[in-house]
Nucleic acid binder design. Structure first.
Lengths: 151, 151
DNA sequence: ATAATTCGTTAGCAGTGCTAAGTAATAGGA
DNA sequence: TCCTATTACTTAGCACTGCTAACGAATTAT
């Protein structure tokens, strides 16, 4: 109960936006250790958890235009983190796949990021953690709903 | 009723990380409309809500190195969104201030961002909003504590 | 007075976003 | 079938954002 005020959606959205930015800035520090930029790391994550896919799909998943993803994939390929094959049914398409090295690197980077955030949460009580967990679940839920509404 | 399980810091960090990424991907779309890059917009926000400050302070607030902030401020100045004065007590320092134009632009961008996220929250109940607001406050708090521990 | 520190800038690199324009392959219609 | 339109990806070139290294100027400490 604590707060008597009923927060407006606008107020919540604004504070949530700010909090998310500040939170991710801390996680970002660890990314430097991976030796791979954030866009490549994020795309690699999609490949590892979503499986091989065409460039256009990958671009859509990352909400980025095709030329941008083309360069990201080229970078991943150059580092040996992903490989490109041509589609058997459509020679225009490519099939991007994470390599074993890519999967290994992603897991390490992911662990570092999460541990960095866990460290930040060291002052949080169990009650706080419960609130944060429920908030994270809510966010995933409403974001998914919003994405579904679009298509 | 919620959950009987006590969430670990690691688990909370992991879900929070994922939620923050997905949330910000939606907000990012609106930022393009401002005609000002995200780093400049964010720095301008600090100036508007935190008042005039030295470059070093601003860099610290944005968790960015001095040369990066130097360029961001130069960009803001070039667009007439901020102005630079010399500090009266210490001639090495500069005093960065948001202009009226900067404040106006920030408020517009802020409104767009907030409306975008508020739309996403359209399905959330008052109870959900309360959870999200408290989570946002907690995040800001622990991030601030982490930043203070460093210096 | 001199040395060390602090503040900000400049230069140069890498990465990431975009649009415009080009190439190659596929799909569709006359 | 052949010609056109569409789709998939790449290339080129721009702007923005992050970094380190190296510099000049001002302040602080010895």
């Amino acid at each position: 109960m604590s707060d008597l005020k009923k927060p407006s959606r606008f107020e919540v959205a604004d504070r949530l936006h700010s909090a998310a930015i500040h939170l991710l800035r801390h996680a970002r520090k660890q990314d430097a250790l991976a030796g791979v930029g954030p866009a490549r790391l994020s795309a690699l994550s999609v490949l590892v958890f979503g499986g091989p896919m065409a460039l256009r799909q990958l671009a859509a998943a990352e909400q980025v235009k095709a030329p941008t993803m083309s360069r990201i994939v080229a970078g991943l390929q150059g580092s040996g983190l992903a490989k490109i094959e041509t589609d058997a049914h459509d020679a225009r398409r490519i099939r991007v796949t994470a390599t074993a090295k890519g999967e290994r690197l992603l897991q390490q980077a992911r662990t570092r990021r999460v541990q960095q955030l866990a460290e930040i949460l060291s002052e949080a009580t169990h009650r706080d953690l419960d609130t944060l967990l429920r908030a994270a679940q809510l966010i995933e839920q409403v974001v998914k709903q919003a994405a579904d509404r679009k298509q």
